[in-house]
Amino acid sequence: MLKKIALLATALVALDATMAAAAPKVMKYTHYQPGREDQPKHAAALAFEKCVEGATSGSIDVQIFPAGQLGNATTALEGLRLGTVELAVVHDGGISSVYSPFDVFALPYIFPNHEVAYKVLDGDFGKEFADAMLKETSIRLLAYADNGIRHFTNSKHPIKTPDDLKGLKIRVQPAPVFISLVESLGASPSAIDWGELPAALAQGTVDGQENGVTNIMAASLYQSQKYATLDGHVYSLHAYLISDVFYQGLTDVEKKAVDTCVVEARDIHRNMTRATDLAAEKTLTDVGMEVYVPSADEIAAFRDLAQPVVRKHLEAAVGADWVEKLVKAVEAAGGSQ
């Protein structure tokens, strides 16, 4: 009888081991755009899910939670650090609350175009930056994607010069660097979380805001904003972030799948957002906004006011080293002021 019990116990242990080996590793993947395929973050997420699950023969189960279903950016980033959220695609302002050097990308008017930005982000600077973030936060930055080139909108009047911003209340991301940027141009900044922005604009809590066209369209901000100025003051980013606790628990095959598939997701995300950026004037005009496209000289007037102030802020907040490295990387990639 005892022998039978021992054999049964051995069999159950073996069965448990087999079941555990067969159970997929769940990857909770959250982002902050609507769960529609016309949204860059979600289209990229769906591609990533298909790619990873195929490449790992289902050993990773990717579960997508769009529209901030797992909480705001701060909650998601804390989850990444603890390993309770496996992957999140988070905007720059949110990331800087956990890793302040991310604010360096908000240096205004630093990237002249998409091509220069991609060279910098996908090159040595981007890798060095990601390695430093991993060391400090235990969050692994897998890829940089576009959050759209940021422009000013408002409900009061056209903005053609920095003087036109004076007296306006402008919503910014809850990040000091964006407060510094808006103040440098003479407007009054108000830090409001993304989820509360449409209501704040509709109720007149603020007069305007600054965002990429993708986000303006996704949240229908044009419904309460009459005027847009395509000044392109910040090349805003999303980052693909994975919990290093989770990543280190993957097999080599699974790690390779994640690393490969995130590039596919990144490129879908970038291409969709870039296309919207390049069509900004028509897109916003078609929904009833009055759009102003500043000349190079007019952009220079904004840059000459904003960049020195924000650079000084960044040098104090995140260190002159990161600022100088970014400026040099942009110059090496073919950008110039």
Rank of each mutant, 00 (worst) to 15 (best):
G212D: 11
K50I: 04
D259Y: 00
E128A: 14
V330W: 07
S295P: 05
E210V: 08
I64F: 10
R150A: 15
S57Q: 15
A117P: 02
S138D: 15
Q307D: 02
H42V: 13
N215P: 00
A73P: 00
A132V: 01
L80G: 00
C51Y: 12
E128K: 15
Y227D: 05
A219E: 13
I110H: 07
G212A: 12
G123H: 12
P162N: 09
E254I: 09
F65H: 15
L305E: 07
A21G: 08
Q69L: 12
P24I: 03
G123E: 13
A280V: 07
V309T: 13
H233G: 01
I192Y: 10
D286K: 09
Q337Y: 12
L142H: 08
G35Q: 12
A20V: 04
G288D: 07
I60K: 01
I170G: 03
C261A: 14
G212M: 09
N154M: 10
V26Y: 00
L107H: 06
I5D: 06
L87P: 01
S243R: 00
T214W: 08
F178M: 11
I139C: 02
V253M: 02
R36K: 15
Y247E: 00
L82N: 13
Q248G: 03
P308K: 01
A265I: 11
P34Y: 08
A228W: 00
E324Y: 06
L168R: 04
N147A: 13
G71W: 01
D92T: 12
K3D: 14
V291K: 09
L241D: 09
V85H: 04
H233C: 02
V90F: 04
L314V: 07
K328D: 14
D38Y: 09
V177R: 00
D231M: 08
K255P: 06
A320T: 06
M289D: 04
A76S: 15
G93F: 02
S59G: 02
S96G: 11
D304M: 01
V323A: 04
